[in-house]
Amino acid sequence: MMKVITGAWRAPAAWVGRSAVGTAAGMGRFGQFLAGIGHALTDVRTWGPALVAQMGRIGVASLPIALFIAAFTGIVLALQASYTFTGAIPKYFVGVLVGKTMLLELGPVLTGLALAGRVGANIAAELGTMRVTEQIDALETLGYDPLAHLVVPKVMAALIMFPVVVAFANAMGIVAAWATALNLLDMTTPEFVRGLRLFFVPFDVTYSLIKAASFGLAVATIGCFFGFTTWGGAQAVGRSTTQAVVLSSMVILVLDAFWAVTLL
């Protein structure tokens, strides 16, 4: 077999082989990492005290950027809906579109992508730096579980705070669209509220929060994994950070489709 693949085909075949092996090894390491997190979850006394601090850093500190994105998303959504719904379609459908779109899609996904950049990068850079400066190795040497100390609080904080941030973002987007409708689209509050309530079902909120929690879990876990597995110098930290943000964003979109298929 090796004799058959010669000459010009040798390099691409080797690349595919290396990639496959690298991917399999990465997945193996990620599985091992997840198993370690699962094991560390039982050590509540270690990660519990650090949880609130991480919730502050990941959740509360992310609120401004999330609200900013949501506000302008709501404004644009209302204007584009009004631009699209011309003629026979009544104005209150602006409320329908804003409510459904913010709750089901744009609120969780845009917030998730924004937090993937902010939180995922932050986590990957922090843990990567700790790894390359051998602080994590020191913890291991001292007999501490670095996963329980460094990873689990971040993952749990993201799991809890992403839905909270998304809830605020949803509300901000709707309020911004409401203000836009009143001031720029000559709509009345009863019209907008009628549209908001027209096809609303409580599951829309549940769906939005489920998506947000899954995005938080993915962003934190991927950020921690790439930071935790950084190997090299400062350049490796940057590479891990970039990989964490890119992969988190991709996973958010994949999860978005997954939940749409499974829950809607």
Partner: peptide
């Protein structure tokens, strides 16, 4: 920080 996180959590749930 704890108060801020708690307030945000409660506000989120209420919202």
């Amino acid at each position: 920080n704890e108060v801020r996180v708690g307030a945000v959590l409660i506000a989120g749930i209420v919202l």
